[in-house]
Design a protein around this nucleic acid. Structure first.
Lengths: 190, 190, 190, 190
DNA sequence: TATGAATGAGGGTTCATTCAT
DNA sequence: TATGAATGAACCCTCATTCAT
């Protein structure tokens, strides 16, 4: 990614995260990037193309951050905990972004298919760790597809709704709570 | 809600659920409703206004469905299970709708504030049931705000990602799984 | 054709005849027509669509003018002469128009196919008159397709090149000359 | 014309003949020529300039081909016949080219004046041969300006409309027919 | 109440042209 | 000579909204 493309990339994230994809205009992005509008089209084919690029890069970033962080961990539960932390931070930073992504999960257009694949790739990481946990006898046998989806949704939802308390989010706390509830369940114990 | 307004309401749900809010046009909605475009503006102030109305009505519907179903139930766990079933069906039917709603949770405009309140009202129902469960000693003491959010996100996510398997969704199955994992946890047991 | 559409129609002919299709803009046409730009799109699907409509109407007009004029004529040579007169006047008035049409005769897009058909329809009128002439023993047997094409081209070319002399065109004179040369040939006679 | 300019020249003919002047872009021409876009501007001042150059070269080519072919001919009718053959082949090869040229015959801009002059030069060749024919008592006295224009238009039109029959064109046949009809006329003879 | 023709600001995209290298 | 990234004016088109009927 050369310098100009990077300027556009950053501007696009800024603008789109702030106003949403549909309310962002190419003019604004160009302005923010400090380039002419035509330059956007020298580096990207269309507005949609920018979105695709953003999501691609975003998901890669998230994946790589996670993979790097957990590469040295042995315990699959610690890994899951780390995923929660990293994903929480990421979601918090790129809220709108994630929504854009989610909003593309339905629909049958080509772009949308490609997004779906990418999210699935991400969920696959979670699945694999669940598998590890099962093998290590840390996790009970379970429907891992269902569980990884639920995991993803739970984290996302928590980030979205943290505003309810007007609190600043604490990813570490979220991670601890989620791990606790997920592992031990919430049924009453004497 | 008189007949014309109802026609518009139904058309709007159809169109917006299918194409998303931003890609839906007033022309399409009018067409689908079988009224003239001007008529939309007799019954609603703006396109945004239609959205607000849709979400208001939609959330009321969801709330009422749930409240009615659980009104005869005694056991708070059964109640939670029922919520999952109803919400799953609802999400499945009005996918895009929910996304629109979610996409409005951020932002600081007035509309968005009103949406937030309404979703919080809904989460409150879940919270209350959790409270009941705690009192009934069915549920362990826990952070109910966090838990209700997580609950909501989990269900949403499961619906969204059921496409992964190209399966038709079975809300009853989803409900059973979620209850099982949520209550007993997934840690390994001999 | 209602009043607004007619205003647009006339404006489009004016502008396009003057500047050519590609150099004409929707803004100019709207300005000339005295309507808003959006109004163009209420009555036509696209800029191309306007062109198609123009050509359709233009060719209909030409055809009808000719058919009406020759309907009372008995002699096929007189008819051909009349065609020359009418077509000359028409070409003179709508020069650019005809070029647009001609420029669409190649190419394999759908629009172009439809144009081709329409011109062929027109040539068919000439062919039929040639046929009549042959039956009436006024015209020698000949390749009528070739001849009708040549006829059409000859007239068009004469109009185009009349500028060479900076003369104002005299369709009657052109008609007489063409008929004379066409019928008797130009070979030397004692 | 050096090598690079020639590459551009050939690419421009290809592209413009295929897509028309207005729908051809400098990018495409550069691509086809295998040079950078900037290079076009090193060899030509503008897109228009390329067109002018194309037409200049094209008409020179046509003129030279014709002049060479007829230089050894004595009989002015044979010469006219040869012109038809050569022009037919040329038109067939460079259809769009000729249209571009024709489309520039009107208008009052400088470029257009220069085009006009060049076409007139070409028509002058035909006129001169007609003159010769008259002197040689092969051709009847006639309006040679009108006749040369008609001649040109006839040939062009025949090429354009040969598509009607989906036949491959046979310039020799066209030439024979045109000469026959032009010289002897089409009036009925016992 | 309902209509639908008309509006016009605004958006995405194209592309001939420039210029530093 | 040649390059290709950058430009920005200009264009086509969309669509929420208005208003006379």
């Amino acid at each position: 990614m050369n310098k100009t493309k990077e300027k556009i990339f950053n501007a696009a994230i800024d603008i789109i995260s702030q106003k949403g994809f549909y309310k962002s205009t190419m003019d604004e992005i160009a302005d923010k990037a400090g380039v002419a509008k035509g330059t956007l089209y020298y580096h990207f084919n269309s507005k949609d193309d920018i979105l695709i690029f953003l999501i691609d890069e975003g998901l890669s970033l998230l994946k790589n951050q996670i993979l790097e962080k957990i590469s040295h961990m042995k315990n699959s539960i610690e890994k899951l905990r780390e995923i929660i932390v990293v994903q929480s931070k990421f979601l918090f930073k790129y809220k709108d972004f994630v929504l854009i992504l989610l909003s593309q999960l339905w629909g049958k257009e080509e772009i949308q298919n490609s997004f779906r694949e990418k999210i699935y790739d991400y969920l696959k990481i979670i699945e694999d760790i669940i598998d590890e946990g099962i093998e290590e006898k840390l996790i009970e046998k379970c429907d891992k597809k269902l569980l990884s989806s639920a995991f993803f949704g739970m984290i996302s939802s928590l980030i979205i709704f943290q505003f309810r308390n007007n609190d600043v989010i604490d990813p570490e706390h979220i991670a601890d709570s989620v791990i606790e509830y997920t592992f031990n369940g919430i049924h009453y114990r004497d």
